[in-house]
């Protein structure tokens, strides 16, 4: 006899074509499920998503500048812009945003914790370079529509599906002088709770 048959303690496994096909199909189906699960779970577990990177820069009740550092920091911002962020919470009251800037491109975006921009506009929407905007949640918007006051019709009303938001203000500033101007515009821009826009309740407490 030859040595090979002695060395083998178990027989070679025999696979039929149908068994291989069944295993392959099973592996592919399981891989598909894992693939879909992984894709859906990435946003849940990602710690360096846009929202968590931008939160440290966001001012309370005012716009503060997002510094553009070459490494780390916030990705995807235009280096020719001065970018500002302001944290908004709509639980208690709507928020009012005002920006006054002429002769330059600028834009405002409302960004939510799901990394979604729920609302955005640019300076073309502003009347003579000044923007007066009110950010509301769904129930506040319904209440506003029921008792539309005259003030409101002059403002842009943006409805947000979530209460927690960051308002992003991007000001085009390609030169040093333009950057200084942009920082002044940002300092003068308002981003405040605006309880007064809500209609007074008839019951009075």
């Amino acid at each position: 006899m030859n040595g090979l048959s002695i060395a083998r303690t178990w027989p070679l496994p025999r696979f039929s074509i149908s068994a291989i096909a069944a295993v392959t199909a099973g592996v592919l189906m399981a891989a598909g499920a894992i693939h879909i699960g992984a894709i859906l779970l990435v946003p849940v577990f990602a710690e360096a998503d846009g929202w968590s990177r931008i939160v440290p820069y966001a001012g309370a009740d005012r716009f503060t500048e997002i510094s553009v550092s070459p490494t780390g920091g916030v990705a995807g911002l235009d280096p020719l812009f001065v970018n500002g962020a302001c944290r908004i919470n709509l639980t208690e009251a709507p928020a009012g945003i005002t920006v006054n800037a002429r002769d330059r491109f600028w834009s405002v975006a409302l960004y939510n914790p799901d990394d979604v921009i729920v609302f955005s506009l640019n300076d073309r929407t502003a009347i003579e370079g000044s923007l007066d905007m009110i950010v509301v949640n769904r129930s506040q918007n319904a209440e506003l529509k029921r008792a539309a006051t005259e003030d409101i019709t002059l403002s842009i009303v943006a409805e947000s599906p979530s209460d927690d938001l960051i308002a992003l203000l991007r000001l085009f500033a390609p030169t040093k002088t333009a950057q200084e101007d942009a920082r002044r515009i940002m300092a003068q821009a308002e981003c405040l709770p605006a309880p007064s826009v809500m209609p007074a309740r008839a019951s009075g407490g």
């Binding site: 360096a48 968590s52 990177r53 931008i54 990705a75 990394d115 609302f119 955005s120």
Partner: peptide, 14 residues
């Protein structure tokens, strides 16, 4: 987006 952390442009921006 969650992985790269990029802040996208809104449809009203660009």
């Amino acid at each position: 987006l969650a992985r790269t952390g990029e802040i996208p442009l809104g449809s009203g921006e660009g």
